[in-house]
Design a binder for these strands. Structure first.
Lengths: 238, 238
DNA sequence: CGTGGTCACGAACACTGTTCTAGTTACGAA
DNA sequence: TTCGTAACTAGAACAGTGTTCGTGACCACG
């Protein structure tokens, strides 16, 4: 809009743009806005809270309007995961630092998933057809190949690592969500979980009882890092 | 029933035992029957088809009746996964064959999950509070410890392996389900998938295009076995 | 026999994703 | 400028989901 149009808009009555009977908004919603709003809802309320109605409310529109922009909910899922993947910064693979590079990309993926609690469930349900998802796969594969991993092992390891990342994040999201719920039955922080494991009958669960501490140990993403490390160690000796 | 009662029953009119107004069955449904029927539905139609109504139909009862036996759907999920785990045969850990033992337990878990397509999604959503789930965890942990893996590494590796198994099975279930759907958009067998990868722009996806074959390679559970092997190799060098 | 507990069932509720229909607006062509 | 069409929006409705509530029937026990 040029300055004249902007001024004309300011001089319009305030209600003019919000006519109750209006069937068209000033500016149509864009798919990008749909994705933005959806991610906003997921970030604030978790993936399970993302219903078409919830999303429509966030966009100040009706749920039926969303179908002008997304095919269905599965399509929306794909757009969401694609957006997450698009935001990952993939390094130029370097044969001297490829391990750290790999850890970095996986950590980014992990953190994206965790920024949007529960969304990795959508990631687990996708066939890898989205271009951005393929970009991340390409990035992981490239790092592994640059690191000297054989093509077949690199291909399968990339698959396994991305799969594990999604599953890990789903589990973390669920545990965190449970921690925020008021239902005391499920409030199991680490000490409580450790206590539960330690209280199992030792005759049936000797090692679980003995190593309850180790089973519940780990700060931050120790488990995640450990598993990635295992895979890297495994690859190093193939 | 003694012989006299059986004869009296046979002489009753056929409708007598099926009184329309009857609010109680001959023999009440048991939780075991609920789980059996639920697993039957999942095996035949997939996890997503398992609704309370579908289950109630399979049991020739009403959906509300199910709540006399299970707390809610999440509780049912837990019972189902518990049943799957209860059927796993855990070996007496042997320090000379622990690797094969571990592969065997994970393969059983994998196969149970795949026998009931999509059910591993329920497994991913559970807090590990069920006794049978804990039994399997104990079994995996024991094998690793017997194999000389340090307790902390064993604890975290057990966690990672079970998580990966569930995720792997979820993905396989989804791919298989898609293969059975008539919607041609999603019918991507291996050759088609390979073709799609190979058709990506080589400038953006050089390695994906070059190694489309490797990315789509693998028979049966090659990928699964590869990943478990990676973890074992990683553990061997810690 | 009376009572309490358990099971089963129907109706209803609140919610989900989605389709269908109709209204409105924007845009391009005549 | 007018008209037609495409695109967008919104409400109603549909079919489905998990679950609750109230009630009836049955069974076991005192």
């Amino acid at each position: 809009m040029d300055a004249r149009e902007r001024r004309a808009a300011r001089h319009r009555s305030p209600a003019a743009g919000n006519d109750v009977g209006s069937r068209r908004r000033r500016a149509p919603i864009t798919p990008e806005q749909v994705v933005d709003a959806a991610l906003g809802v997921v970030a604030a309320e978790g993936y399970e809270a993302l219903t078409m109605r919830r999303l429509a409310t966030a966009l100040d529109t009706g749920p039926a309007s969303l179908y002008a922009h997304v095919v269905n909910k599965a399509d929306l899922d794909e757009l969401l995961i694609g957006r997450l993947c698009a935001e990952l910064v993939l390094p130029e693979p370097d044969p001297t630092t490829w391990r750290d590079q790999l850890r970095g990309v996986l950590a980014q993926m992990r953190d994206q998933y965790l920024r949007y609690p529960g969304i990795s469930r959508a990631g687990l349900a996708l066939a890898p057809t989205d271009r951005e998802i393929a970009r991340v796969s390409e990035g992981v594969l490239s790092i592994l190949l640059t690191g000297g991993v054989a093509p077949q092992a690199a291909a399968w390891a990339a698959d396994a690592l991305l799969l594990y990342t999604a599953a890990y994040c789903l589990e973390v999201s669920i545990v965190r969500q449970r921690a925020t719920e008021d239902d005391a039955v499920w409030v199991l922080d680490r000490e409580e979980m450790r206590g539960r494991l330690a209280a199992l009958p030792a005759a049936t669960f000797p090692n679980t009882v003995r190593y309850a501490g180790e089973l519940t140990a780990g700060e931050g993403h120790d488990r995640f890092d450990f598993t990635v490390g295992l895979v890297l160690d495994g690859l190093a000796h193939r």
